[in-house]
Every structure is written in structure tokens, then in C-alpha cells.
Design a protein around this nucleic acid. Structure first.
Lengths: 126, 126
DNA sequence: TTGCTAATAGTAATCGTTACTATTATTATA
DNA sequence: TATAATAATAGTAACGATTACTATTAGCAA
């Protein structure tokens, strides 16, 4: 399940994701890494993003039928602007409160949760 | 933007979705409708599901990279069992409370929101 | 009825993602 | 340090969900 060997590519992918806050999709990570690693393969990016998400090093979520990735693993939710597509992080204690409340409410084991709020951001509303 | 003419197909699609609670994907709606409407096209199902979601007659959300549709437009969230894949509706006043709280917290116009909680349902936990 | 044209059926094309395979690179061991 | 075992990669092909295209059908106003 977990990676057994180090690879330069996986480290670069994790570092790239930790160093940006635009919630990229796999292709955006690929294009970004190609500048420093011209031969990296798109398949390698996908495989490692999947591995990193599986072991909790990064977070994956879906917006508009497309997978996005987030290097910030502190629990938070995302605000998506329907106009410009920008994805903003929302950190607030009420998010954690709500999640634990749901966890208690459901008679189920909760492994994870993610919320996406849609709307118009300040810039697009003007 | 909105449909300008009635169509038997659109009505059947909406009725089908309102009459089930298994949060089907487009293909499931298509297979179901083929029994009563053998010539209906998958493209027609997709187009109308998109139209109906756009004008708020139904709700669309994504689970595992696949679009699902819900005929129940009362605000609620979804619990997805990682084992069996079942999607349960969760109605609770705290959901509405949380959404309105988020709406105030963000300095943004909120058009909609959706939360997916993952875990193991009662049946699969045993 | 008739005419206009939105909506459809059927199919082709697209796009994001995964699978496959020969090659490369990491790591344990001598 | 050299060697062997094999995990991970690069490059490409395949796949599945969704959208686009086009000739035909059907809803609706006159």
C-alpha cells in the first residue's frame, strides 16, 4: 500500500503541492514540475498523487467532476467561485465543531469528510 | 438557459429521479428509463440532467469522481459508505445552521453548498 | 394544417484517468 | 564499491464518463 522506496519524483510532487495554495489538479502539478524535471511522466504524477492522498500526506477532493489536490492537511473546507473558478480555503472552528457533531449524529464510523461551498467571490461580485 | 419546450424525455427523467432515493449516476437513470422508453438516448439523459440541475429542479454532486443526482432538493448532506458504496441522506437542523453560519462567515455570495462524509455504515461495520 | 425550430437519437469525439511494459534507479547485501 | 533484486518510472495505449455533432423528430404558435 504505502511506497516502499524513495523516489525523486514523489518528493518533488509532494514539495510542489506543499508550496502552493491553488488546489491544483494533476495536470497543473505535471506542467509545473516539467520545468525542473522535463522527463517526468503524467502517469507518475497521477500515481504519486493517489499514493500521497491514500496515506494522508495530501488531501484530494472533487470540483466540477475533476480531482483537485491540497497540500494543507489541516481540516478545512473550500469555497469555489462559480465565476472565476478560484478555490479558497476556509478555516474556522465551526467547521471542526460541525464535523464532530455529524460524527456523533451518524451511527457510523466516519473516516473523512469534505464540504464545498459554491458562490461568487468578492472580486467577481463587483 | 432554461428549457423552452416540453419534452416527454425530460419529464420522464425528472419523474424517475423524484421517484428513487439511490442517488443514481446518469447511466443508472438511462438504464432505468430504457425499460419504458427503449429509444431514449444517453446524451438526452445527460443533457436534461444538466438542465434540471442548472435550474435547481434536482441536485448534483460528485462521489469518487462520478456525478450523482438527487431528486430531493431539501438541503441535506450525504454519507458515503467506503465499503458498499451506499449513499445515505442526512437531514438535521445542524446542517442548515452550519450552512447559514458559513454564509455569514464568508464575505461572499453563497449559491449552494454540499458536504460528503465518508466512513463505514452500520451494515459494513459488523 | 403548416412552418419554425427546440429537442432528440445515434454516433463520434473529447477529456481525465488508469493500465501496460520495457527501462531506470533505489536499496540491501557481499 | 560492485552486484543483484525489484520498486518506480517514462512513454504510450486503453478506458470510461461526458460532451459535441448532425440528421431527424416533435412541440407549439399561427
Amino acid at each position: 500500500m504505502q511506497p516502499q522506496r524513495y523516489s525523486r519524483q514523489r518528493e518533488a510532487i509532494l514539495l510542489n503541492l506543499k508550496g502552493r495554495c491553488d488546489h491544483p489538479c494533476a495536470d497543473m502539478v505535471y506542467e509545473s514540475l516539467r520545468k525542473e524535471m522535463p522527463n517526468i511522466s503524467l502517469g507518475t504524477v497521477y500515481r504519486n498523487l493517489n499514493n500521497l492522498a491514500a496515506d494522508g500526506s495530501i488531501v484530494r477532493f472533487t470540483v466540477g467532476g475533476k480531482e483537485r489536490f491540497d497540500g494543507n492537511t489541516t481540516p478545512h473546507i473550500h469555497f469555489v467561485c462559480d465565476q472565476c473558478g478560484e478555490i479558497q480555503d476556509v478555516f474556522h472552528h465551526s467547521v471542526n465543531d460541525f464535523l464532530s457533531q455529524m460524527s456523533h449524529l451518524l451511527n457510523c464510523t466516519v473516516s473523512g469528510a469534505h464540504m464545498v461551498i459554491n458562490g461568487s467571490c468578492q472580486g467577481c461580485r463587483l
